[in-house]
Structures are given as C-alpha cells and as structure tokens.
Design a protein around this nucleic acid. Structure first.
Lengths: 233, 233
DNA sequence: TGAAAACAATGTTTTATAGCACAAATTTAG
DNA sequence: CTAAATTTGTGCTATAAAACATTGTTTTCA
C-alpha cells in the first residue's frame, strides 16, 4: 500500500490546482511549508467545532464532509476527489470548523498552515479570486442540495445521489459500475434517509432494472430512467 | 412613501459595507456607475436561470431569496436586510442566477454593473477578500440550514425560523414583537412545511404561551422555550 | 479459525406530515 | 361600498418514511 502511494502520489505542484497563479516566490514558500499526512480508512481529519489550523488539499483517496444533526444523526454534505481543497472556509471566516471530514478510504492530504494560506490570499489577488470562484460554486451547490433533500421523495433523493456519485467519481472500465463503493449507511447519509430505506429503495431500483447490485458495487443500467426518477422527485 | 424614501435613503457610501477598502479612484468609479432601483412589494428582482447583469446592494426594505423546488413549491433560502449584497454569486461563478429574489416590502436597491464589480474584484485584493469572507460565512449557514431543515421536526423548524427572524430583523419597541410581518405562507416556505402546518404549529405555540399572535404580528413570549424546541428538533 | 461485530435484507408497526375540503376572516380592487 | 380574491384557521384522511424487530450474511480481528 505504501509502495502504491509512493509511486502514484502526485507532487503538490500538480495537485494544487491554483498553482498557476502563484508567483515563483510563493511557490517556493509553499514548497517549504507544506506537510504530507496519511489517513487510514474512517479516520477523522477535521472535527466540527475545532479551530482550523491548516488548509488542506486531498492528494489521494476519497474523503467525506459531514455534519452532525439532531440526535447524532450525521449527514454527508460533500464528497471530495483528489485535487479538491477543504478545511479553509473556517480560516477565512475566522470561525471554527462547521463540518467533520473523514477518510472514506486510505487517503493522503497535503496541508498548508493557516497563516501561510492567509498571507498568500491577502497578497495575491488572482489566488484570492480563485477561492472566491470556488466558494461561489459551492454555495449554489449547497442551496440546490437543500431544496433537493427537503422536497424530493426517497426515490428521487437516492436517484440523485447515485447520479452524483457517477458524475463525481466516474465509472469503472465496464462503463456501468460506479467507481466508489459506499456502505448502505453512507448512501443513506448522503441521501438523507434511514439505512433501511436506502436498502429497500436500492432493491426496488434493482427489481425495476434501473440499477444492478453486487454487494457495494452499483451498476447504473438505465441512466435515463434514473434521471427521470430524480427529476420528478 | 416617496417622501419617506428620499428622507431615509442612505447614500451608497454608507450602505455599501465594503466602501472602506475602496481606493479614492474606485470610489469615484462606483459613484459614477451605480444606479438606483425601486421595487414594489412582491416584485421580482432577479429570476432563477437568467444571466446576472449587476451586483446589488439592498439600500432599503426587505427582500427574500428563494429557490423553486419540486412541483413549483418554493423555498426561502435567505432573507436580506439593508446593507446586504446579493446577485453577485453568479457573476463570480460565471453562472446563471441560482435563485429568485423578490421584494418583501417596497425596497430600494443600488446596482453596480457586473463588469465594474468584476474589475474591482480583480484589482483590489482587500475588496476581493471581503467577499471571500462573506461567501465563507454564507456557505456555513447554507450547510447548517440543510441539516436543520432535513432533520428537525416541524416544531423545531418553525421555532428556528422565528428565532432567525428575531435575530435578523430585531424586535419592535415593545421588546417582543418581531420586526417583520410574514404571511403564514412565507413562514411555511422559510421553515419548509405546508401553510396549514405553519398555521397549526403557530397556534400550538400560542396555546403553550411560547408566542402570542395578532394577525401577522408575532410576539416571542418565552424565548428560552423556543430555543429548546429548536434545539431538540 | 471461530466468535464477535458490522452490515445487509425484509417485514411490521407507528407517526409525522402532506393533502384536501371547507368555513371564516381579511384584504384588494372595480 | 360591495364583490371577488386572498389569507387564515380547522378538521379529516391518506401516506411516506421512521422506528423497531428479526434474520441472514459478510467482515474483522484476537
């Protein structure tokens, strides 16, 4: 596994998508001041309510951003792919973390100290603007998510989640299997329903030949149908 | 009414909260390039799906930001007070409006053309950073809202909405009446429930002496109780 | 390797909330 | 100033989804 990391892990200048707007000095500054952290599956990376210390970049693996709700029930807010930034919102808003982040699978994360991140933000306008764009996009996504989760019925929400997973993580070589394997519980937390209902609805979809299941491997058979189910709610 | 506007309307340099980070040149630039628009109660200010043309600042009045959901049911995403910025997210993300905005009551809005706003954003780092802060705060609020609306029960959601209204718009001189009068329908759209349920739950709160009602005027009698109801969901 | 834990599947019961219908009150407009 | 339209208030019904219970299956790890 470590072997795999060493061979596949991209350097920070390739992973950090805003590298192009950094000056040579800033690049050197970042190179001298970032750290690499490995997290095992299910390990917590950031905890809601704590003070942010670093801005983070997912270098390898998959992580989930969750929020604890009523009665400890927790909801998946966002799921990240390598190259995505996180843990920086609280730094900017001078706020504690508003979410938990944990590793879905073994992951590698590049971290840049908060003060270093802030100092670049405050001196490099193009850099600042990139994050402004990112938050603008995230905000629309969050608002859309609120409406989807509150107004759609179970089938619509699960269909939406499956389409999201496909879009976000892509398909395997067979052109149908979604390239991320979630537990039924995670799938439920993503679609705001109980685990039993995720299981039940998944079974229904399989009976209707909209999807096919093999344990945690989910194949999308009839994407059009799934889109229709998601649309009508 | 027009009289009232003329006498109470603050000039843009007082309303636009980021004025302090503008250079003298930029201030003049904005002064020469903004426009003032009056909207009547219930009038649409921006429409979901259209291309953004201006960044806007609410100078006077109250507006609501909504999003259309399944079956035309629409949800209140945000409610603004004078001094708050809106309509700029889409400009930055180069996206169409993701929400509707309409006037709750007669309102006055200052508008700055998109290209002018963008040009300042791209040249003035402190200005850019201010909006970065604003979006960071809004994003956490949106995520929190998602969890509240999806996990809390009707009573909890309505209690939360009442507390929000109090916090956002304050109380009248009597120290109890919330300084905004919403229709039951708007209150329902804010708390993600049907109008009947908003009415019913409001009656329950009144019977329990948590609030008192006089038409659209809502008095908070027992704020602690309301907080508890909101908390337990 | 075998026991314990975690996960998946499914049926049954209960409950919260939407949906509907209708009456009363209030606001708006001709 | 009246008629129409909108908003508010209530009761009843239907139903989606949670909660609970049980059993089988897979994974973990001591």
């Amino acid at each position: 596994m470590t072997k795999k990391y060493i061979s596949e892990l991209k350097p920070i200048d390739e992973v950090f998508s805003v590298w192009d707007v950094l000056t040579p000095d800033e690049r050197q500054f970042v190179r001298n001041n970032y750290s690499v952290h490995h997290f095992k599956k299910n390990e917590m990376i950031q905890i809601e309510g704590e003070r942010p210390t670093h801005m983070m970049i997912l270098a390898m693996g998959k992580v989930k951003v969750t929020k604890e709700g009523v009665g400890g029930r927790n909801q998946i807010i966002r799921m990240l792919r390598p190259g995505e930034h996180f843990s920086y919102r609280g730094i900017i808003a001078n706020d504690v973390y508003s979410t938990n982040v944990s590793a879905f699978e073994d992951s590698v994360i590049y971290m840049i100290k908060a003060d270093i991140f802030l100092s670049i933000l405050r001196h490099n306008n193009a850099f600042c603007y990139r994050f402004l764009e990112e938050l603008s996009t995230d905000l629309a996504a969050s608002d859309a998510r609120t409406v989807n989760l509150t107004q759609k019925h179970i089938r619509g929400r699960l269909a939406e989640a499956l389409l999201f997973l496909k879009k976000n993580y892509g398909l395997e070589e067979d052109g149908a299997t979604i390239s991320i394997y979630l537990s039924r519980e995670d799938l439920a937390n993503l679609s705001n329903m109980t685990t039993s209902n995720a299981i039940r609805t998944l079974s229904n979809f399989a009976n209707e030949h909209v999807i096919a299941m093999d344990g945690r491997k989910l194949k999308i058979i009839d994407e059009e149908r799934l889109k229709r189910i998601s649309k009508i709610g």
